Simulated assay, not measured.
Amino acid sequence: MTASRGLVLIVEDERYIADVQRLYLTREGFGVQIETDGEAGLAFVRRMHPVAVVLDIGLPGMDGIAFCRALRDADDWTPIVLVTARGEEADRILGLELGADDYLTKPFSPRELVARVKAVLRRASGPPGGAVTRVGRLSIDTAARTVHSDGEPVELTATEFNLLAHLLRNPGRVLTREQLLAQVWGYASYRDTRMVDVFVSQLRAKLGDASPIRTVRGVGYSTAGPCP
């Protein structure tokens, strides 16, 4: 089969796991490259610009956290799906805070991995649109996928942008964490709603006092309406 969906990089030091992941991704039309350590994986991303990275945290040498930090520090926002072992919650949350887009906990179904890769690519492309919305000191252009605060650009990941845009498309409506996981991430069922809190926290940190996101305690999040 000729790959048509783009090239995915798998950074995984357990060869059997990497081979299974490659098998399922290639069946779905992706090209796949496997690297077994973080430094080689990082060099490959910079050279070949894959559409997504499936990144194990527990790598020899440069681990997944250092890989993620190095990529984002270089202003490279290639979608990343973290793969973690059970008991690595602190590393998982840190990875999301550094700009990873999603994660899976071992053991997981290879079909679930494929679904997650497709989901992060959908979020990276974003919904169609072209309107510029202004809320307070913010302006968001859904066609250009840009955000400005007081006229200055704010760099957001694809997932951060989509979360902010979705909240702004529903002004005044309180959205639960489960609803946001379904509507932004595309998950019909997902037990770890803390991921939403992590991304909201990242948005608030980047937007500062201009953030329009409000917490409704015990329920979820909402935003004010656009400026007239």
Results as ranks from 00 to 15, higher is better:
1 M>Y: 12
3 A>L: 07
3 A>S: 14
9 L>G: 01
10 I>W: 09
13 D>C: 04
19 D>I: 00
22 R>W: 03
25 L>V: 05
26 T>N: 12
28 E>A: 10
29 G>V: 01
32 V>F: 04
33 Q>E: 14
33 Q>Y: 10
34 I>V: 15
40 A>S: 14
45 V>Y: 02
47 R>Y: 06
51 V>D: 12
60 P>V: 00
61 G>T: 04
67 F>G: 03
72 R>A: 02
79 P>R: 02
84 T>V: 14
84 T>N: 07
85 A>N: 13
88 E>R: 09
90 A>W: 08
98 L>Q: 07
100 A>H: 03
102 D>I: 03
102 D>P: 13
104 L>E: 06
105 T>V: 15
105 T>I: 15
106 K>Q: 14
109 S>G: 11
109 S>W: 08
113 L>P: 01
113 L>Q: 02
115 A>D: 03
118 K>H: 13
124 A>D: 14
124 A>M: 08
126 G>S: 05
127 P>T: 06
138 L>F: 12
143 A>H: 12
143 A>T: 04
145 R>K: 14
146 T>M: 08
147 V>H: 02
149 S>R: 13
150 D>Y: 09
155 E>T: 13
158 A>R: 03
159 T>W: 10
160 E>S: 04
160 E>C: 05
169 R>F: 09
175 L>R: 07
176 T>L: 00
182 A>P: 14
184 V>C: 06
185 W>N: 06
187 Y>P: 04
190 Y>R: 08
190 Y>T: 04
193 T>Y: 03
198 V>C: 02
199 F>G: 04
199 F>T: 06
199 F>Y: 14
202 Q>G: 11
203 L>F: 13
208 G>Q: 05
209 D>R: 13
214 R>L: 12
216 V>C: 05
222 S>C: 12
224 A>C: 11
225 G>C: 00
